[in-house]
Nucleic acid binder design. Structure first.
Ligand code: MN
Ligand code: MN
Ligand code: ZN
Ligand code: ZN
Lengths: 157, 157
DNA sequence: AAGCTTATTGACAATGGCTATCAATTGAAA
DNA sequence: TTTCAATTGATAGCCATTGTCAATAAGCTT
């Protein structure tokens, strides 16, 4: 076949999405596809409600429940990652298999979220898990603080 | 005075508690004091409901809302620390000013929570915050996995 | 010790993010 | 097309936590 020699780097998220639907007896629907595409288009760390609000602008009949449902599917398919910071919302971010693992630094004042990678921390975590005889499956590292902008604002007016 | 030359190491949590109440127009009540003492006695990472259940054994009339309220006060007073792992409950743990900061490694199978300290990770976090020009106020590091016991169980039975 | 003022309590209602339910609709296989 | 399971939007329900409120208790002040 034309694509099989391309060491699977050509797998787009859309292909992954369709494959997941197929293998799980799920259907491609106009709402589902729309939500998935809009999710991809918007980027960032988005809540179901934010995404729903955005979609509503063009497609006012799509229900919030369907957005929740679709985000869960995308997460199960490995296309989205669930994130829970400390604001009571579940957020989703698009996951590209090319991307490396990253953690987050969050501004508690304006909500800005920056991403960072730190191999040393990752390694140290592994050693901690080992020391406590835990099989590490996941981890969560979040730094909370005030971004440069918000720190400056606080100092002045 | 008899205590003033003791570089404040003699401050018990009870003193801190009473002081906090005083300075904030709050009252010492039998329920409040009971909840605070039971919280101290039980240790661990406890939920409001767990604590309430324990107290109910001896004092069946104490309301759950009062337990919630008291835990919030203890947190504000710096006597308890709030923790949110990924099980949907807010947990509280007693905080001793003598203790150093620690993070957590959590078994997703049996719920066991171990505590660890790692200065290298702490330092690396500071450097990340600095790189992103964030004023770090807090951070959360949790390792999720399976404890030795639960890993073994999974392999066999 | 009694009165006074304000905080506190327990019961219960309400909140809010999210999920379950259900009748109507749609996708896709035949 | 027909068929039939999957999907949808609306809405009810869930559940940890918080708000409300009338009754009560703390901690002054006399
Ligand atoms: Mn991210
Ligand atoms: Mn702890
Ligand atoms: Zn900010
Ligand atoms: Zn375990």
């Amino acid at each position: 076949m034309a694509t099989s020699n391309k060491q699977k780097q050509g797998d787009t998220w859309q292909e992954k999405y369709q494959e997941y639907l197929l293998h799980n007896g799920l259907k491609s629907t106009v709402q589902r596809d729309l939500i998935a595409n809009e999710f991809y288009r918007l980027k960032g760390h988005i809540t179901a409600e934010d995404l729903h609000a955005n979609i509503r602008k063009k497609h006012s009949s799509i229900g919030l429940a369907t957005v929740y449902r679709t985000l869960k599917i995308l997460a199960s398919a490995g296309i989205a990652h669930e994130r829970r910071f400390n604001d009571g919302f579940t957020r989703y971010e698009f996951f590209d298999p090319e991307d490396r693992h990253h953690d987050h630094i969050v501004c508690i004042s304006c909500g800005k979220v920056e991403e960072f990678e730190n191999d040393e921390i990752e390694e140290l975590q592994k050693s901690v898990a080992k020391r406590y005889k835990f099989t590490m499956l996941d981890h969560k590292l979040e730094i909370y603080g005030r971004c440069n902008n918000c720190s400056t604002k606080a100092k002045n007016g």
